[in-house]
Simulated assay, not measured.
Amino acid sequence: MTGNRLSTIGFDADDTLWHNEQFYRLTEGRLAGLLAGHAQAEHVSQRLLEAEKRNLQVYGFGIKGFTLSMIETAIEISGGEVPASVIAEILAAGREMLEHPVDPLPQVRETLEQLSGSYRLVLITKGDLFDQERKLAQSGLGELFDAVEIVSDKTAATYRHLFARHGDGPRHSMMVGNSLKSDVVPAIEAGGWGVHVPHELTWALEHAEAPVEAPRFRRLEHLGQLVELLREIG
């Protein structure tokens, strides 16, 4: 392929195609309620975030790691005195998260249907393999993707590899997602386009500065604007 014509578009899944972070926030609030006798909600949230950050390299991304971090937080905050009944409640909350219904965001299906056939569409998501496969199946969007990649993390090297595997390399590829840190910045570093579609809720560990000076950075208010963007950049 010559020039810079796009051939491949990667899409993030959680909070780009369907709601996800809201379930974490609700469960975090539930944990704060369980530990109300030991600490205020703000302190519980802070300690939980610290545990999640510590445990990423061990448990990876996803609900199972989040559940283990909640248990660890409960033990730490209670000084090891948290009752088994509370641990059982935390485990139940984690199981409920793994069973929550998948609710696609507005204009997602319509946009994917318009792009399918004109571009190679690749779902690129990180997290627990079984849970991400479940959510994709329940979303009803799987048939619109040419490939699905569930990865342990998203780095520039990840995008270089995946866009070479499923397309014509990063220069002819675009990554679309709600996370500047995982979806946008590393895709641009790899040589591709990075399109930020913000979600009202974004995990604190996914925050990053927008690369506003990068010529291949774009920000959209919603996914429905992607088709027009693709027309503009050719």
Rank of each mutant, 00 (worst) to 15 (best):
E76R: 12
P106V: 01
V86P: 13
E99L: 00
I63M: 02
A88Y: 09
L105Q: 09
I77D: 12
Q57M: 05
P101L: 02
V86Y: 10
L98G: 02
T111I: 09
S69I: 03
L105I: 06
P101V: 00
V108C: 08
G62F: 03
I90Y: 04
G80D: 14
I71E: 05
I87C: 11
G94C: 05
A92F: 06
Q57L: 05
V82P: 15
A88H: 12
M70G: 04
E50W: 00
A92H: 10
G80M: 08
L91K: 15
E110R: 14
E99Y: 00
T73V: 08
R95K: 10
E110L: 07
Y59M: 03
E110N: 14
E81V: 08
A92D: 13
V82T: 11
G79A: 12
S85K: 11
I71G: 04
S69H: 01
G80T: 14
I90N: 10
I77Y: 08
D103M: 14
A92K: 15
Q57R: 09
E89T: 06
A74H: 10
E72D: 12
V86G: 14
I90G: 15
A92R: 15
M70A: 11
V102A: 13
K64T: 03
G94T: 04
A51M: 04
E99N: 05
Q107Y: 09
F66N: 11
D103I: 02
I75A: 10
L56F: 07
P106D: 04
F66W: 04
G79H: 10
G60R: 02
Q107N: 12
M97Y: 03
F66A: 13
K53Y: 07
V102N: 15
S69K: 04
T111Q: 10
Q107A: 08
I75P: 08
A92E: 11
I63T: 11
A92G: 13
E96I: 02
A88C: 07
P106L: 01
K64P: 00
Y59A: 09
Q57V: 00
S85R: 13
A74D: 14
G94V: 00
